[in-house]
């Protein structure tokens, strides 16, 4: 592709992006916890047109046995894109990119999980991308951490994630597919909001020192916003049940 961002207007002079967002605005984010019946924990995340399911199984026995660690649980993660998730059919076989993202997501989640509680066991995280429209690894981390919490796995904190991009020289939050492809920079970022610890920071493109600092503070702010939504999603199920039960008791 020879189109460069210089030739494309991704952000209008008055600071509106292609989908009408301001640079520091994330897309509409919907999170639902505990939607898959057969998984120990699960979550569904919809961030604009990016749609992701995450399922957690475990802690369970490790197979093959030799992969087990005697002092902690092993976290296994599989990020997978469905063949219909992108414009042109994607082969269902894991690609180089998916294998890499699985590793990156696993390493973003592991610091949050108290792995020492379940020696020689495995916690499996399966992430299925139903529709991809940019920032899938960040949405995957959001979904996976809600799924882990809904499985009742002890965690130090939830992990929230958000990407920062640079389009036409402007730093923007939560990049879409088009902004990622034709923009200058894509920086996925994940953190534990209550502990203020960064668990994932990647950078595709070039940013100056001031820009990096600004990008991180923008992403951190967005992560706190996303964390509130994760929290609400986890509580929602129980609060709803609480309401119906209390009403039923009164009558």
């Amino acid at each position: 592709m020879s189109i460069k961002s210089k030739e494309l207007t991704l952000i209008s002079p008055d600071g509106r992006r292609l989908d009408g967002r301001r640079p520091d605005e994330i897309r509409e984010l919907k999170i639902k916890a505990g939607i898959l019946e057969n998984a120990d924990g699960s979550a569904y995340v919809e961030q604009g047109n990016t749609k992701i399911y995450a399922a957690v199984y475990g802690p369970r026995e490790v197979h093959p046995r030799h992969l087990a660690l005697p002092n902690r649980a092993v976290i296994r993660c599989r990020y997978h894109m469905t063949p219909f998730s992108v414009e042109e059919r994607k082969s269902p076989a894991p690609t180089r990119r998916e294998i890499e993202l699985s590793k990156v997501i696993r390493e973003a989640l592991t610091p949050a999980i108290i792995v020492e509680q379940f020696p020689s066991s495995a916690i499996d995280v399966f992430i299925e991308v139903i529709n991809a429209d940019g920032s899938t690894r960040c949405a995957s981390i959001i979904a996976a951490s809600v799924a882990l919490a809904s499985a009742g796995i002890p965690m130090k904190d939830l992990v929230a994630a958000c990407s920062v991009g640079k389009i036409n020289g402007v730093l923007v939050l939560d990049v879409t597919d088009v902004e990622d492809k034709y923009g200058e920079v894509d920086m996925p970022f994940a953190m534990m909001p209550n502990r203020n610890e960064i668990t994932l920071l990647q950078l595709d493109g070039i940013l100056g020192p001031e820009e990096i600092e600004k990008a991180i503070s923008m992403a951190a702010k967005a992560c706190k916003e996303i964390y509130e939504k994760q929290k609400n999603a986890l509580k929602e199920r129980y609060i709803e049940l609480r309401k119906t039960v209390e009403e039923g008791f009164r009558t």
Partner: peptide
Amino acid sequence: DLVVPGEV
């Protein structure tokens, strides 16, 4: 009160 992981 209902709490989730990481809540202070």
